[in-house]
Simulated assay, not measured.
Amino acid sequence: MIRTALVAFTSTLLIALATPVASAASLVEVTNFGANPGGMRMHVYVPDSRPPNPAIVVAMHGCGGSGPGFYSSSEFASLANQRGFVVIYPSAQQQAGFGKCFDTWSAAAKQRGGGSDPVSIVSMVNHVKQTYGGDPNRVFATGSSSGGMMTNHMLALYPDVFKAGAAFMGVPFNCFANAADFPPPGSKCTNGTMNRTPQQWGDAVRQTFPGYTGPRPKMQLWHGTADTLVPYSLLQEEIEQWTNVFGLSQTPTSTDTPQPNWNRRRYADPAGTALVEAYSIQGAGHSLPSAGMAAQALNFFGVV
């Protein structure tokens, strides 16, 4: 009986040793990803389980942060494990008062193909498309604070690359006049007095890519009502920009409360598709995204 038990144990052990153990995905730095005029660093998270042509999400940190820091502090990597998309975590290298921030103020950064950080980010997207078979029809941008500002930027400059975005605590595209106008809270953009017309905001986007007639990426916007660093009033300026780009009314087609303290306004086209969503987070300061918000952004993207 002892011999039989020993043989059975040995057989089980050999089978266990021969069975491959699933590898655990980890954050990996990519050093040669193409044109990089912003001198940026790139990290990528590729989940073990993913479809042949996964969606791509560019997730961008706030001033003073980093790609690895945003990987650790946000929910995008854990959601990538569940939903099978690849996450790009860029690290900004531009020094601007609060530490390293994404360049949303220079003339180069406001021009399609002009250079600086936007060109570097597009290179990262192209690298993931080529290396991991990323789906060119499912490329999305999101970010917090400086990263939210860059989300507005990327969707304005590259509507042919990005299909949707989710900007947390951002500002409209072309809000900052130049390097001297950054960072918050002393800039003209974020001192609480910025107020352009929807037409002016929309024109700023359209002028980046004259003659473009293709589809525009839809936009989800998030802001805390108690944010004093990037004032809550800028959410309305973002709404005006993107509803104007889509030719939509400034009046939401619906409002609701998906979770307590999350007040959502939706701006839909005649077919009922919400092209712009705006979330006012009651009582929240400069602290987004918080729990559950990344999942809501991915639902908006259609990455389920």
Results as ranks from 00 to 15, higher is better:
residue 177 A to S: 13
residue 223 H to I: 00
residue 163 K to C: 04
residue 191 N to C: 10
residue 216 R to L: 15
residue 218 K to R: 15
residue 220 Q to F: 01
residue 201 W to Y: 13
residue 171 V to G: 01
residue 191 N to Y: 12
residue 211 G to K: 09
residue 137 N to I: 03
residue 220 Q to H: 00
residue 136 P to R: 11
residue 184 P to S: 11
residue 173 F to V: 05
residue 164 A to S: 10
residue 222 W to M: 01
residue 159 P to T: 12
residue 151 T to Y: 07
residue 157 L to M: 08
residue 160 D to G: 12
residue 203 D to K: 14
residue 214 G to Q: 11
residue 186 G to H: 11
residue 142 T to N: 04
residue 159 P to Q: 13
residue 214 G to W: 12
residue 131 T to W: 05
residue 161 V to F: 04
residue 203 D to M: 14
residue 207 Q to Y: 03
residue 147 G to R: 02
residue 139 V to R: 01
residue 222 W to H: 01
residue 154 M to N: 07
residue 138 R to F: 06
residue 213 T to L: 14
residue 133 G to S: 06
residue 191 N to L: 10
residue 219 M to K: 00
residue 140 F to E: 01
residue 152 N to F: 00
residue 195 N to G: 01
residue 178 N to M: 02
residue 192 G to R: 05
residue 217 P to H: 04
residue 188 K to S: 15
residue 134 G to P: 00
residue 169 M to V: 13
residue 150 M to W: 05
residue 151 T to C: 11
residue 189 C to H: 02
residue 172 P to E: 09
residue 153 H to W: 10
residue 173 F to E: 06
residue 215 P to C: 13
residue 193 T to G: 03
residue 146 S to N: 12
residue 166 A to Y: 02
residue 169 M to L: 13
residue 184 P to W: 05
residue 166 A to N: 03
residue 162 F to W: 07
residue 200 Q to E: 10
residue 159 P to D: 14
residue 177 A to L: 11
residue 160 D to W: 09
residue 142 T to A: 07
residue 187 S to Q: 09
residue 165 G to Q: 04
residue 149 M to W: 09
residue 198 P to W: 08
residue 219 M to E: 03
residue 165 G to D: 05
residue 133 G to Y: 07
residue 203 D to F: 09
residue 138 R to N: 06
residue 217 P to R: 04
residue 160 D to Y: 10
